[in-house]
Amino acid sequence: MKTPSTVDIEGLAAGDRRTYQHVFDLFYDSLCCFANRYIKDLAGCEDCVQKTFIALWDHRTSISSEVHLKSFLYQVCHNNALNHLKHEQVKEQYLSEMKYETEDQTCFINEVLEEEVERILRQTEQDLPPKCREIFILAMQGRSTEEIAIQLGVTENTIKTQKKIAYKQLKKHVKDLYLLVILLTQ
């Protein structure tokens, strides 16, 4: 099933349950992966993400844009993860090891960026037919058209066509970029 990549922010603010579920579908996996950077056990990660979505519901009216939505989710998830660690009484030990990684805002931002790239790629993969997905994954690992053609035993032209289909799908997930670029370059 294809999930639209953009979120109806107004719908969310108005308390629309389907939009809320849509946000859950889009971000659940990635937030769990993100939490997993701090919390090692699966249940702890899911618990932390659950709390994050509860917080989103509580603050839904204050979410002003999709960018804001994302930074809200990752920021709250990050806080929850650190709180979770505190409860586990290992925070001290953890912080002493990870001080430079977690307390540094740059590092937090970079972790989010990495998780977001993976999320966009995963979502694109999800929407592709199997053969096309395989090619897309290889291409995203930096393989050239020629290499992929040899590995899969098909012509370079086939690869090019499939890549086009995949990139078209990918663009759906990155389409609001144009708007953003305009905003930033004003």
């Binding site: 960018v67 930074s71 790629l121």
Partner: peptide, 18 residues
């Protein structure tokens, strides 16, 4: 630094990969 100011980066990275 604010996270908000960097949320356009993942899209740029993805696009550059493609």
């Amino acid at each position: 630094k604010k996270l908000d100011d960097y949320m356009h980066i993942p899209r740029l990275i993805v696009k550059s990969m493609a």
